[in-house]
Amino acid sequence: MDPEMTTMIDAAPSTTSLVKPDHKDTSSLRDRLIGNADLEESLGAKEENAEAETSLAARATMTSYPSLVDTSVLDRQCWVCFAGEDEEPGQRWLRPCRCRGSTKWVHYLCLQQWIDSQQKGTVTMPVTCPQCGALYLLKYGSVGAIHRILDALERSINKGCPYMAGICLVGATYWTAVSYGALTVMQVVGHREGLQMMERSDPLVLLIALPSIPACLIWAKMARWEDWAARNWRWLLHSVCPWVFEQPAEDFLFADQHTSPSRILCGALIFPTIATLIGRFLLGRRVRSNLNRTILGGLVFIGVKGILRIYYKLKHNEQYQKREIMDAPETRNADTQAPDDMFQ
């Protein structure tokens, strides 16, 4: 290889990128050009070779339209930084898409930044030319099979994590419900008896039955029987003892109140504890069985609480029905007197 020729080609990289599409490997391009510039006989020898054919075609373009190529090189301008041919010397020029005219050329480094800004870190994302829509040909260096496997792994992990987190959340809720169920069983029937009972039962039944304890408590709490009773108390009394209470004449307006979800949750989950405490307090010695004591305690609690709640609701409703909207107190005198006071 002629050393003089190599330096000459090195000094004019822009011409090489002009003749050849830039996504091709530059080193092979240079080799080809050197081969091309060497002598015609070498070309003739390699005529069957596809590579030699392309370089021949490139040479033909150069020779047949020299003026066209020259002018487009002279007034080329980068569509990213807007620098012209001689404003940023030493920059590598690219012609990466189907655009024509002034937006055809771009600096290699500028286009790299534009692609970076479009990809936002996803290196393998395809990017198109914002003007002509052509897909930029991005060649990625070979990084090996291990990297490809790791890349696929990375992507699948990123995709799977939200699902995993969801499953974890559901699982955590389930196991919390199971623990709560087990604690409640031990609280209601007694510590030792509860343990024995659970040990004797089928684990599969336990896994379904235990978490359904808090679920049932919440579901039962959502049935607001006191509200219904408060609303229909006259009908209720009439239907229980029709000889004492007359049939109510009319329905009356009722101020409805919304119960918050957090209140339903807390009320439902604390109910077994309250039932146990009340049972122990009221019937400590008289009832031997823990279960019976707790059930009685629970019934007392529900009954007393229900009566209090119905009373509260009725009073609340009475207050609501007695509400009156008043006129504002007469203020005309105050208005007219105020300025006088200021001047006095």
């Binding site: 569509w79 990213v80 807007f82 937006t103 500028c110 534009w114 914002p130 003007q131």
Partner: peptide
């Protein structure tokens, strides 16, 4: 979204 660096 449709901004392109070639616009001025």
């Amino acid at each position: 979204t449709n901004w392109a660096a070639a616009m001025t």
